Simulated assay, not measured.
Amino acid sequence: MQTFATSSIIAGIFTSTALTALSNNWVLAWLSLELNTLAILPVISKTKHPRAIEASTKYFLTQAVASCLLLSASTTNAWQTGTWDITQITNKPASALMFLALTMKAGTVPTHFWLPEVMQGSTLQTAMLISTWQKIAPTILMLSTSNFTPPNITLTLGLLSMTFGGWGGMNQTQLRKMMAYSSIANMGWTLVVLTSEPKTSMINIITYIVIVLPTMAMMILTSTKTLQNMSTSWTISPIASTTMALLLLSTAGLPPLTGFFPKLLILNELMTQSLTPTAILATMTSLLGLVFYLRTAYLTTLLSSPGSATSTSKWRAKLGKTKTMALVPTALTTSTALPTLIQ
């Protein structure tokens, strides 16, 4: 019975995202997003801990408000145009409200408040799911309606997301919260060029997901949840520790790693659109993210020597070499060689 329930929940999560990507009217898109929300709630609250229940409650309330805003905006637009077609949005207030609802679901400023708390109250596996797969459905809808979204709103929210994501991540010692603020900052990069070059936004979000998946998989394998754990991860697996440092630097966008590739495309597009001040601000805010990623990489590989064991329990953990060696080639490829493979 438990296996059947688990399979049904996983099928619901993946099917709802696929339906959202294939939908061409707002009713089906709204229903798919609701199915996605209801499917992920048991996954978040599965852990028998008050923080998990709190996280699932916050997630449900935020997603419910966003769904209400989306349904209200789509109904208003259908009233004006006589159609529920996603590509037929002529009402500007409805378009702005739709975009705000989708950004609330994706976790961007100013409706980002729920994401760090929900990820912190979830397990590492669930946090990985929230920061990657759960971003796909609202991002697809934002890309589908990018021609009708006011450019000023996307630029403003994009810059605010990059700024708040960078500042918020600098003060964190919990890796799940740090990855949440990283997700907020990355959504800012996605929004900045959403209206001018949607394909570049799509490349950015796909690259981020491809990098974050092996990064959080490494955290799961090494049972790493805090910066203190990062300082002793070398004693568990030096290979996993070094690979995780490269992945973190790639997520920060440090050249010539994979994460720098979409950021370069976005900056080039901003310069092409004569948005030089925006490009400068985006570059400056990316330095905030680079600070806490460099700090984490420093704690991972440089703080403690390979032969030290500063923790009383962490160093006794045994990590299967087979699992580590199977994940390392994938992680190294996504962090360093992905732009070469794309070209």
Rank of each mutant, 00 (worst) to 15 (best):
G169H: 03
I140Y: 09
W30K: 05
L124G: 07
A185T: 10
S67K: 05
W234D: 10
A337H: 14
L249G: 03
L249D: 03
R295N: 01
V193W: 10
G289M: 02
S196W: 06
V328I: 11
A55R: 07
K135G: 11
S311Y: 02
I13S: 12
E197H: 15
A78K: 01
V118Q: 06
L28T: 15
L267Q: 00
K321P: 11
S308H: 05
E269R: 08
H49F: 13
T242R: 12
T123Q: 14
Y208T: 02
S223K: 14
I10F: 07
K105H: 02
I239V: 13
T81L: 04
S122V: 03
L246V: 05
M119C: 11
K314I: 14
I239L: 15
K318D: 08
M170F: 05
A29K: 09
P198H: 09
A252H: 00
L257M: 05
S311I: 04
K225F: 13
L141E: 07
L70M: 11
L100I: 02
A240E: 04
H49Y: 12
L332M: 15
E54K: 12
A185V: 07
A66E: 04
M178E: 01
L249W: 02
M104S: 04
F148H: 15
I13G: 08
I86C: 05
L143Y: 03
Q228E: 15
K58H: 08
L124V: 07
C68R: 06
S74M: 00
T333D: 08
Q88S: 09
P214I: 03
S32H: 13
A96K: 05
Q63V: 03
T6L: 12
W167E: 04
